[in-house]
Design a protein around this nucleic acid. Sequence first.
DNA 1: TTCATGCTATTTATATGACTTTTAAAGTAG
DNA 2: CTACTTTAAAAGTCATATAAATAGCATGAA
Lengths: 230, 230
Amino acid sequence: MAETSTLNITQNLTHTLGLAILRGDFVDALPSEAEICERFGVSRSSTREAVKMLSAKGLIRSRPKQGIRIQPERNWNMFDPDVLKWTLVSKPTLNLLREFFEMRLVTDPQAAALAAQHALPENIVELRKSIDRMRDAESGLDDSLDADIAFVTALFEATHNRFFIQLIEFTSTALRVTSRYSNRMQGVSFSNLATCIAVFDAIVQKQADTAFELVQNMLTQMMETVLADT
Amino acid sequence: MAETSTLNITQNLTHTLGLAILRGDFVDALPSEAEICERFGVSRSSTREAVKMLSAKGLIRSRPKQGIRIQPERNWNMFDPDVLKWTLVSKPTLNLLREFFEMRLVTDPQAAALAAQHALPENIVELRKSIDRMRDAESGLDDSLDADIAFVTALFEATHNRFFIQLIEFTSTALRVTSRYSNRMQGVSFSNLATCIAVFDAIVQKQADTAFELVQNMLTQMMETVLADT
DNA sequence: TTCATGCTATTTATATGACTTTTAAAGTAG
DNA sequence: CTACTTTAAAAGTCATATAAATAGCATGAA
């Protein structure tokens, strides 16, 4: 978690409206600025700032006379951690999980392969640390989810590709939210310690193909478990 | 293009500041709100709204007393079309192109495979239309870049996976910007008409593996051409 | 010294009101 | 029926006042 602070008014309104949009509470437009102010008891400044934030994430668009209209889903920035979180919280369907896995099944094996090619000593250090944490987690000395996320983080950082690195937030947000909301997802990430060690070894030895296949197999198996009774 | 309107003050400031951040004009913090107002001759409302937009994209974070600080690059939402555009415009390096291709080399073949599995009749119609446009483009009756983007769009829509669909904006933004700023990228997308037709056929016949390989080969070849003299 | 506690000044956060610009839709002239 | 004009609704912009958060300093006790 670590989200220390009490959210301020603007942040609060942003989350409330964002979640409401994702939940489908509004058909194709939001109430006018004035009405939002009244309904939520906040000033126009805060309302406008919240609207700007949601615009920046592609959810809405506001224009004079037309009001605040919801954008077609294509424009929603699904890789934005907030948007992803609102999506997962509001519609945690099996279908969404399937789509999420379809994406990871592409990105994660390739991340492992790129890591094997581009990893620097400091990346190896981080990977080793995360493996240690996973080992600790097995004996209850560390949190399993946090350890998994640390491994994914170290793995993706080792690719030295900014687009893959961006996916760290994507993946960890999804893991955190789903693990909190769905029993089905408990412990579903890189929980297999033995395989992770094998991936680590492959990366150290710069065996990209091996790393690729190990991760691919691990995810395929995981996906089958999670989506078993579709 | 089609971006009809003159940008308003807030949008303008957002782009100016966003680009400046990506260009590295600010070390680790932006000037204070008050100073931004003065320097750009805009009101505080507009300044704050622009700041909120950039915060929503993960570029900055503003807190009382601390001011407006630039976030670590990990938090930047690279899949946001604006952020991607600013990145490409400000640092169109060969390395960035490499990273972009590494990503497409993973997503596009898998998109083709998923399209073969999940495409509905309407998706086939759109794919066919885009192929027609590419054919037109060859004889100068249509714009080659637009036709390519139409193909990518139809392809990714056919996956029926919202994360892949999100990548449409990512890919088309990158194609549009790079083709405008770099001669090296001229005509670099799906320009090979014959292969695209083959991909289309594979999708129609639900041959996921074939579609996957065709796209992968096409992109690999394209990548080698573009990154030839690294 | 060293650590905690309270003060202060700076910067963003919030609220309010006035005015401007954009634009969909109604109205009007031809 | 078309093309132009008017109107009014809603967001866009500006200015100002006040509140809240907080980094850094100062003060004082152990």
